[in-house]
Design a protein around this nucleic acid. Structure first.
Lengths: 230, 230
DNA sequence: CCAAAAGTGTTTCCGATACACCCATGA
DNA sequence: TCATGGGTGTATCGGAAACACTTTTGG
């Protein structure tokens, strides 16, 4: 026990809510705890922050160690530290992040690690360890809110996608059905979609054109002070 | 040095960006540091979180101790911990909050405490200690964004205010000039303003009617799933 | 009576919404 | 040839924006 301080200190952790999307449903990646407290319960991936480690780096490290997920969109969500007993062992303050992963890239990883990891439909996720239910709920609220005015939805889709896939994603996130023609008109009018000379493969009907999100155009849009919306 | 841990731990602090509004300008309350590091420099009020203390409680305590401000609207902003050298002494992770204060209630306090405290115009605040410039900037961005879709502007005004005062506040926050008739139409149409049978006093022209923000009506609005906007 | 701000409606315009049919492809 | 989804245009509606003069009050 070599590290001593004048006053007691809280432990500092990071937790990650990793969202994925699966042509139908919004999913979240959970790990099953292999030790107390809450042994056997599902929880958000996360762990202790090293004293010399930037917060976001800690979040990415834990993400990779526990689930194999890397190189994802990651954003700080909220810091949970109002309930001093949220961890039964001692005072733990946790900085929560949420991540958006392209499910296609991360299908296999789930079962590879020492810990048991699995994608759950957000709608029927089990009751989680610690206050992680609350963290998940906040992440979901944030995602649903943010998707309206920032083009983060694209982080959940493969790099090349059809307009119908994009529309389904928005319909899932916004919990609303959208008009196909109006949706296309709006999205294409923004000029943020690059129309590719490719079409989807292996479908049992007319193949749809593929598009790619144009990051450069979005940055230009931002510079001109304009906003993405709906 | 009675408190020992297996691994070294970061120190945990809270910092507060306290905004006030003064019929003209947006202000921020700063304190002058009386000890190193950054002795003499202006900084955001804040300090260490006690191990048994909820985060928000720590923020309110520091706010009161250092500036006398209490009972304000307070909301978590962001947790700063990516730069491991943001405090030159050791690793410090800081949970930042922002507060909205009615300047009228807090005019005197500024100079009362042991530390030197003062309201600065946000536009010409001095360069701050630590990474507090960055914290202030983020708080400002958040305030400007949030004011559009949540009725938090009222927290900056006295309980009874005129429509012109409210409009000036929004013009300041949004950095835009608004049409008087359209502004009034819109705000009154929301039904969130309670029209009082009082008028402002001691003005050298026709006295304006006073209004009060109707919290109950807002809660009802929220329950019906509707949003405040602009 | 003058200065200063309060208060008040209507028209115009643009973006949001509603809506239905033909086309291409693989089975 | 049939089932499945892809792709397309127009008319209507409603809220946002533009816009100027009269009223009240104190000095």
């Amino acid at each position: 026990m070599p590290h001593s301080y004048r006053y007691p200190r809280a432990a500092l952790t990071v937790d990650c809510v990793i969202f994925g999307y699966d042509t139908e449903d919004l999913k979240v990646l959970l790990i099953q705890r292999d030790s107390p407290p809450f042994e056997g319960r599902w929880a958000l991936p996360g762990g202790f922050v090293d004293v010399g480690e930037p917060l976001e780096e800690a979040a990415r490290r834990e993400l990779k160690e526990e689930t194999g997920v890397e190189k994802v969109y990651l954003e700080q969500l909220y810091t949970f530290g109002d309930d001093v007993k949220r961890d039964p062992r001692e005072r733990v303050v946790s900085v929560a992040y949420y991540a958006l992963a392209k499910l296609s890239d991360h299908r296999v990883q789930a079962a590879t690690d020492a810990r048991n990891a699995a994608w759950f439909q957000v709608a029927d996720a089990p009751s989680l360890a610690f206050d992680h239910d609350q963290v998940l709920e906040m992440a979901l609220t944030r995602l649903k809110g943010k998707v309206r005015y920032q083009p983060i939805g694209f982080e959940l889709l493969p790099p090349k996608f059809t307009l119908t896939q994009l529309q389904r994603l928005y319909e899932t996130l916004l919990e609303a059905s959208l008009d196909k023609r109006n949706f296309r008109k709006k999205l294409l009018a923004m000029g943020l979609l690059e129309e590719l000379d490719e079409i989807e493969q292996d479908v049992a009907h007319r193949a749809a054109r593929l598009y790619r999100f144009d990051k450069r155009a979005y940055r230009d849009l931002q510079k001109r002070g304009l906003h993405f919306e709906l």
